[in-house]
Design a protein around this nucleic acid. Structure first.
Lengths: 214, 214
DNA sequence: AAGATAACTGACTCGCGAGTCAGTTAGGAG
DNA sequence: CTCCTAACTGACTCGCGAGTCAGTTATCTT
């Protein structure tokens, strides 16, 4: 009875590694359940660590969550920005941006889920909303630059119309990304094709079929 | 000092009215802060009532929240369904549906906010996701019925493509509705015009410009 | 006016989760 | 081998919020 198997006397890790481990565990947890449904106890357990240790690396639950949020929002933004920078033409640029975005969703599945899971509540919403809005604004800016001065829909202010169009575009793509997240068997190119099919046509209309490709 | 002004001895109300009052207060609170950020104490205060009384009408916080959710999800669904039923043609039907939807968002601003605020977390997400999916499925069904059998985007399964298209459509409209919620000065017809401009063109592409109007 | 009933409340319990602290121990520097 | 630091933990506190209960009072009925 005294044959204690004395299971693995847990290795100590350097602060940086441990921090990374905690972040990974937290990402898992938050992606699975959202901010409020996740306790630091959960995170600690997933990380195989005591709750107290978490406080050696992060001063509060919010800070931990915020660190993740910032990391991935930044990565997402950078990815898309970089992708966009490689293409000059209107349609190609849109395609490149979408490709970058979808690549992120594919590569950082958990991160994407975490972003979406925290899109609605409290001041957490602010981060996501800002991201969304930044995307819409960027798109709107491109449209303003490229589109002809005619109003796309009768009786609507040009700037307003562009803003709304951009908002819809973002919404459509985000929605599609979420759908894709639950249909991972569908290859990325197909999703991209559909997204382009939907978005580009809508955008093209803005320029009445010309002006955008030059 | 003994001049007690004995402020308004709060009127008693019949159970039904009180219940309604509590529901209204809860709607306010949940719309403003989301489920988790709202305590029953908040709701009670807003309703001008003790917390205990709430439990005379609802057995738990979830039930209270659920009652609101069900009410408005149902109303929204019914509104759109009714609107759709009045139009037979493809484009007119889409316009009618959108009009009904935007009408709901305009009329039940708080309810809409509450729905959106609870779209992401835990099993609360299920309700909203189901609603979303129901909408997408309905749209997809219409498309399947009306669209020609050609594949809309090269190399993508027809059914899959339609599903994705519908998902994007829903996302775009929801996104636009949220934007509108923060730009209430923009009249409904303009929002509708933009939504149609975006959505219909994308859809028309599916049928290559014909087949939908007959 | 008396009694009954249903609206209503203050003051409770109780569990959960964020955050803390007084230590214990691994493992590297000398 | 011996310190010394930095990783690490168990066992706490403490406030908050859901849910409860014993009682109080308004209003309707007779």
């Amino acid at each position: 009875m005294s044959s204690v198997t004395h299971d693995v006397p847990r290795r100590r890790m350097a602060a940086v590694e441990r921090r990374a481990g905690i972040l990974a565990a937290a990402l898992d947890a938050f992606a699975a359940g959202g901010y409020h449904e996740t306790s630091l106890g959960d995170v600690a357990e997933r990380a195989g660590v005591s709750k107290a240790l978490i406080y050696e690396h992060f001063s509060s639950k919010r800070e931990l969550h915020g660190a993740l949020l910032e990391t991935y929002v930044h990565e997402l933004l950078a990815t898309v920005a970089e992708a966009i920078a490689t293409a000059e033409q209107g349609e190609q640029r849109l395609r490149a941006g979408l490709e970058g975005f979808l690549g992120f969703v594919e590569r950082r599945r958990d991160a994407w889920r975490m972003l979406v899971r925290n899109a609605a509540e409290g001041d957490l919403a602010a981060s996501f909303e800002r991201l969304r809005h930044e995307a819409a604004a960027a798109i709107a800016a491109l449209m303003v630059a490229d589109a002809p001065p005619e109003s796309p829909a009768a009786g609507v202010e040009r700037e307003l119309a562009i803003e709304m169009l951009a908002e819809q575009l973002v919404g459509a793509v985000v929605s599609l990304a979420n759908w894709w997240d639950e249909h991972r068997d569908v290859p990325r190119e197909q999703v991209l094709a559909i997204a382009m099919d939907f978005a580009w046509v809508g955008l093209e209309r803005l320029g009445e079929g010309e002006a955008w490709n030059a």
